[in-house]
Amino acid sequence: MAVTLSDEARQYIALFDEETDVAATDCIVDDEYDRVVFVVSPGTMGQAIGPGGKHVKRIEEKLGQDVEVVEGADTPEDFVANALAPAAVYNVTISEDDTTVAYAEVDHDDRGVAIGKDGRNIDLARRLAKRHFDVDEIELT
């Protein structure tokens, strides 16, 4: 699925690439929560974050915003699980009727982490899943 990027997001991706040597596949500038979220290709998360998180810290200093990194995936199930990290997600099932819904089985103790303060984490996961796999909704089970 093609992702449309704003000019600002493209500039941030260029900075991310320069700082990490990892090409981000998506970038969301979330002004509501003063954060920038990058999606990276599967298997590149460690390199993108850097030792001790040094790459992320450097980008945060340059942008003056919090930076989050989400690892992409080849399937919508894996992508939803990655988007809800660091919550422990045991299983994701996709149901396609009139709408496409991802049912994510999250550890009881991690439900708060998956939802986030004011719903910010689950909202981001929903937004990313829609952009990358046309998933209309994520429900926690």
Rank of each mutant, 00 (worst) to 15 (best):
A88D: 00
H108M: 10
G53N: 11
G53Q: 04
D21S: 13
T44D: 11
R131W: 10
S41T: 13
E68R: 08
P76Y: 01
G52N: 10
R58V: 10
N82D: 06
N91M: 09
T141D: 14
L84Q: 06
I122F: 01
E61R: 14
T75Y: 00
F133Y: 06
P42A: 04
R111A: 07
V37M: 04
V101K: 14
V56T: 08
K130T: 05
D21K: 14
E96H: 12
R58N: 14
V69W: 00
G119T: 11
K130P: 03
V69N: 00
E61I: 10
F38W: 03
T100L: 02
E32T: 13
Y33K: 06
K54H: 09
V37D: 03
D26E: 11
K130W: 07
I28G: 04
D118T: 11
A81L: 03
D110Y: 00
D74T: 12
A48R: 00
A104W: 03
G53H: 02
Y12M: 14
D66I: 09
G43K: 02
K130L: 05
M45S: 03
E68N: 12
G53D: 04
E18Q: 12
V36K: 10
V22A: 00
Q65M: 09
K130H: 10
L128R: 15
D97M: 05
I28A: 12
V29R: 08
Q47C: 09
E8P: 04
V56M: 02
D31S: 14
T20R: 00
G72F: 05
D78M: 12
E137P: 13
E61Y: 11
S95H: 14
R10I: 02
I13C: 05
E18S: 11
V3G: 02
D26V: 01
D17G: 10
A129T: 11
A102E: 15
A104C: 02
H132K: 12
I94A: 12
D123W: 12
G64P: 05
S95I: 08
A14T: 11
V56F: 01
R111M: 10
V89M: 00
E71F: 11
P51M: 10
P86M: 01
V22I: 09
A48I: 00
A85D: 01
R131H: 09
D118R: 15
Y12E: 13
I28D: 02
L128T: 13
S6C: 09
E61W: 06
A14D: 11
F16E: 03
E105N: 10
A102T: 08
K130S: 07
H55L: 09
K57L: 03
E61V: 09
T141A: 06
G112F: 06
T93A: 12
D66Q: 10
T99L: 11
V101I: 15
N121V: 01
R35N: 07
E77Y: 05
P86T: 00
H55A: 13
G46A: 07
G53C: 07
V101E: 15
N121F: 09
K117C: 12
T93S: 13
A14R: 15
G116R: 13
H108W: 07
E77G: 04
V113D: 05
E18P: 03
N82C: 04
Y33P: 05
G119I: 08
E137H: 13
A24Y: 02
E77Q: 14
L5Q: 15
